[in-house]
């Protein structure tokens, strides 16, 4: 494909992978609802960065700009709704512990 641009890609890729690992670790390790959402946010940031890098390498900067801006808007909406749901859980249980939401099993 683009041999020299792939050379350019991989330091970014390492950083993206690091962010992905941090985000996944955050999702699995945390016992706090807000922190779980922060984990999701970190994952989305990693993917956003990946999109920007891809646009830079393949010379489609305009296209990826449009994509990334759309992505940021969507992300904000999703987060607003999720925080609303977390707020609802907090009013019921008065705590943000993730163990409160293990009522349904099987």
């Amino acid at each position: 494909m683009y041999a020299e641009s792939l050379q350019l890609l991989w330091p970014f890729l390492v950083f993206v992978l690091m962010l992905l690992v941090i985000g996944i670790y955050c999702l699995f390790a945390t016992l706090n609802l807000i922190r779980a959402l922060i984990g999701v946010e970190i994952l989305i940031k990693a993917v956003t960065l990946l999109l920007i890098v891809v646009g830079y390498i393949t010379d489609h900067v305009a296209l990826t700009q449009a994509l990334v801006i759309t992505l940021i808007v969507i992300e904000a909406v999703v987060m607003a709704v999720s925080v609303g749901v977390v707020l609802g859980i907090h009013t019921h249980k008065n705590s943000l512990d993730i163990r409160n939401i293990r009522n349904m099993k099987g």
Binding site: L27, L33, A36, V40, L43, I44, V47, V78, V81, S82, V85, V86, G88, I89, H92, K93, N100, I101, N103, M104
Partner: peptide, 21 residues
């Protein structure tokens, strides 16, 4: 806004976000 519904919604939010990612 019942507790179980919020719980289901939160699980859906997390897994659906992971799927989108």
């Amino acid at each position: 806004k019942e507790m179980l519904a919020l719980e289901g919604a939160f699980k859906y939010i997390i897994l659906s976000s992971v799927a989108s990612i």
